[in-house]
Design a protein around this nucleic acid. Structure first.
Lengths: 165, 165
DNA sequence: AGTTTACGTCAGCCTTGTTGACATTCCAAG
DNA sequence: CTTGGAATGTCAACAAGGCTGACGTAAACT
């Protein structure tokens, strides 16, 4: 029953199991983004706007550079998104007080309202999935996801966790 | 210690916990796609090609319509990808024998070779994550992902699981 | 015979990513 | 004080990969 070389059952590491995990990630991610996508489709916004709003809400006053690193896109790409959000009055960009080159980003009331709508929708699905699977499964879920991240992303994730907890 | 209304500890369902789960999905999905993306970048291919190749490999002889439903894109979008794969000799499209309107899709030897390269890279990361987290965490991981899928995607996922196991 | 289905294709549009080039502003080191 | 580099913004051009709409063809169904 156990792998003789390690004394441990390694059946969960077969290629077939890994393939199923890959497909599970694919299908689940689709569900994960489906609800906010529906909300955003009605406005002139897309997933990129959602991501920006999410992380600005999560770390108010964050700099553009920091947001860039978290999102993993170029400044030009982020700038396009950010510009529309600022124009539409969802995000406020304040020049840094100590370092005036930096822009610190904040959600306006309207921005927070949209963030709420989007994250309510996304959390509802997450909550349903968590509840269906139970606390122990959730712990495992988070463990595997963390192990799947690139090391620098894992560091950023941990930092967010600690700041929010 | 336990929620009085249910007699169960529901701390794992707090908004903060859900937010962390959302961020974990985001960061992990980036890692999940990073390795194949690097391979694909060298060729003229993208993530869309990878997905098509993956599912054709997984269900050889699948029809265009079926692939469409699995991938959740329009036929125009899929057709663009499929055409290049056929032109480049990675995918073969055979007219159906019983129903001649249908095209059945197969990977060529070259297609299978690329599929191997891509899925080797992706499975390597998956395997490392699985190994680091352990079998019990993996079970929880899969449970939560399944619960997160849209019902029809869950059905398709289950069907693939059974066909491959 | 007429309708529906499966597929392909043309044309055009949008979001969101990319690179490259260049201006500005400011901090900090020399 | 000057100069180099960092942080930011902006313009332009481009590509991938989604989308809709429209049209055509062949096969199958009724």
């Amino acid at each position: 029953m156990s792998d003789p070389s390690t004394g441990e059952n390694l059946l969960f590491l077969t290629d077939e199991q890994l393939r199923q995990g890959i497909e599970a990630m694919f299908f689940a991610y689709r569900g994960f983004t489906a609800d906010p996508d529906r909300i955003l489709a009605d406005m002139a916004y897309g997933r990129a706007h959602h991501r920006a709003i999410h992380f600005i809400n999560r770390a108010p006053g964050t700099t553009v550079n920091n947001l860039l690193a978290i999102l993993g896109v170029t400044k030009q790409s982020l700038n396009r998104v950010l510009r529309t959000l600022i124009e539409d009055g969802l995000v406020e960009s304040r020049v840094g007080s100590s370092d005036k080159r930096e822009r610190h980003l904040y959600l306006t009331d309207a921005g927070r309202a949209l963030e709420q709508r989007l994250s309510d929708a996304q959390r509802a699905r997450m909550r349903a999935a968590y509840r269906a699977a139970g606390p122990q499964a959730v712990a495992g879920f988070r463990q595997v996801l963390e192990a799947m991240m690139d090391p620098d992303m894992r560091r950023r994730y941990q930092a967010l966790k600690e700041s929010g907890a």
